[in-house]
Design a protein around this nucleic acid. Structure first.
Lengths: 334, 334
DNA sequence: GACCAGCTTTGGACCGTTCCAGAACGTACG
DNA sequence: CGTACGTTCTGGAACGGTCCAAAGCTGGTC
């Protein structure tokens, strides 16, 4: 007993399959009574169009593939929300795939998506550099969202302005009176941008000598370890700017373990304004990247690129804001 | 310039399209030199099979759709990992869709998946009851993972044993010496099971009168508010069993706000062993549902059901374990 | 050399849609 | 009444694969 096809519907409604197709695609050129008949037949049979057949014939899928770096890191949820709403408004559906899960299996997600012939590809977050993405991007309109790399010929990049974000955070700490400030640095271009911006601002305030940087990864563990290193310096910083919220939580634990009270003895700033930072018990001061907006704009970029695949690559940056919560205050001595 | 088809490959390799198809599907019946020629042509042209065409002809997609309840709640990540690895081993790919994002848009994900003619459907977590899922489940093999509902005719359920999990947690608290114990109750069947099990264990120990229950939702906010209510009772509990980790974090905040130290003045137990509970700064004692295992078994159930769609619905329960961390200890008075 | 079996290879039908050219059916007009 | 033109409807050809029956090769045997 196979699912009904458009021909079954046609037969039942007493019309040709072409007319059914017309009705289903919302044509105006159909007499109301026939339309009724077709819709009734669709309903009675529980007909659902076959997406494969449709996309084979239409040569497009109205589907975009979203490559996630790793679902364990919750920063992208808002972004997806923005992405999805804008795509949905334009009749595109979104399919997700998590790189982390599949990478372990040695599977290449871009392959899945290119076989599916998605109309577009969105890479969310910094993906490990891969030849696969490069070739995929050459064949299907692609946008990178919430990351700054890779930079490829016809690939747009939509992300928060990391330079500005790190500046806001650093200036906030300096304005509070902090002088000796540490930074937990992250990976890749994003990591480099935030770090450089931190250093620049410190220099602008004549505080270069009081800036300390330790490398973390993007995890809590990494943040913890980097903070332990920062705080074991002879003169320890009174504030730390973390690369992201996760490593900021690690910093929080490190502070606690060393008997430092946050924010009294140590101010902390995270980055991304994830829901983790909003947990009351953590309540991190953090930089908000306007992720929802990043998502929406990424969707728009993709739509534009689908319309004109050859236009030059763009970089769109959103303006971050500082979200001041409970982990920052003036340093104790002041 | 369209992507190459199997016919382009055939022409280039100087064979028929049928032979190309044979090679690509790994037939043994092909002479090595032809195989080489075909593979070379595939490589030179960058040929990728068209999934739509293939599934149209094969009448299956080798794809299963995964419906997520809400990505904001991180408990399912492990589950997906288990799911994915088992499915992958059996040549199935997994497509994700988040219900929360799309529900707002009024879009019905089961519709998307049925149009794609996925070979199977996995509902992860408690989804809002929907007619759509019921009809979808009638047409395509479906498994519910990490939730206990809905119960539908040919739908398997794979989840942690909530009764046992709540028992482990409650007994742990009682063994530590707690007598007056509160519970933050959750929604749905899962919520009811955990709650009832909590009450049963309390009764078994003659502590029925000292058990207090407040309803939370599944969020931090809900946990916070429920805890405030629990702690404002004239005789306040010395321990709280939360429905999940998120609401446990809310409880943590409530305790902090009321000047109670955890675990000295108040012991807390979460549920799900999410990465949030593993954050060093929170370090929640929690119940581990063996999510990875739930995922693997759900995949197996789906595979079995695809093989025999009419077999009766099964309920598979995994055995939870207690993960004792930093939020439980004997009560202060003891 | 004819015949057969077994291995390789092939052409064509089919999967369920969309799209397009043209047929059928009014309807208005000279 | 014949013609022209709009509107509605239809059959058949794609789309890019898989599958199957049958054809083409090989080599061995009598």
């Amino acid at each position: 007993m196979r699912p009904p096809t458009i021909r079954d519907v046609a037969e039942r409604a007493g019309v040709s399959k072409s007319l059914v197709s017309l009705v289903l695609r919302g044509s105006e050129q159909v007499r109301p009574e026939k339309r009724e008949a077709v819709l009734a037949a669709v309903d009675e049979l529980g007909y659902r169009p076959n997406a494969a057949a449709r996309s084979l014939s239409e040569r497009r899928t109205r589907t975009v593939g979203v490559l996630l770096h790793d679902m364990r890191n919750p920063w992208f949820v808002e972004l997806l929300d923005g992405l999805n709403s804008r795509l949905h408004d334009n009749g595109l559906r979104m399919l997700l795939a998590d790189g982390h899960l599949n990478r372990r299996l040695g599977e290449d997600l871009t392959r899945t998506f290119t076989e599916l012939r998605v109309d577009g590809l969105i890479a969310v977050g910094t993906l490990p550099p891969s030849e696969a993405l490069r070739t995929a991007a050459a064949q299907v309109p692609t946008v990178v969202a919430g990351a700054r790399e890779p930079t490829l010929p016809h690939v747009d990049v939509v992300a928060g302005d990391d330079q500005l974000g790190a500046r806001l955070a650093t200036e906030h700490l300096i304005a509070l009176g902090h002088r000796r400030i540490g930074h937990i640095a992250g990976d890749g271009v994003v990591g480099a941008l935030r770090r450089r911006s931190f250093e620049t601002v410190m220099r602008e305030h004549g505080l270069s000598d009081l800036a300390a940087v330790e490398r973390g990864d993007l995890t809590e563990e990494g943040g913890y370890r980097a903070t332990v290193r920062l705080l074991s310096a002879p003169e320890r910083p009174t504030a730390v700017l973390a690369f992201n919220d996760m490593s900021c939580v690690g910093a929080l634990s490190a502070a606690e373990e060393l008997g430092l009270s946050v924010p009294r003895d140590l101010s902390l700033v995270g980055y991304d304004n994830t829901y983790v930072s909003r947990l009351r018990h953590l309540w991190l001061t953090t930089v908000d990247n306007a992720s929802h907006d990043v998502g929406r704009r990424a969707a728009q970029s993709l739509l534009d690129r689908i319309a004109d695949p050859t236009r030059p690559a763009q970089v769109v940056l959103t303006t971050p804001t500082l979200e001041i919560r409970g982990t920052t205050s003036p340093p104790a001595g002041r």
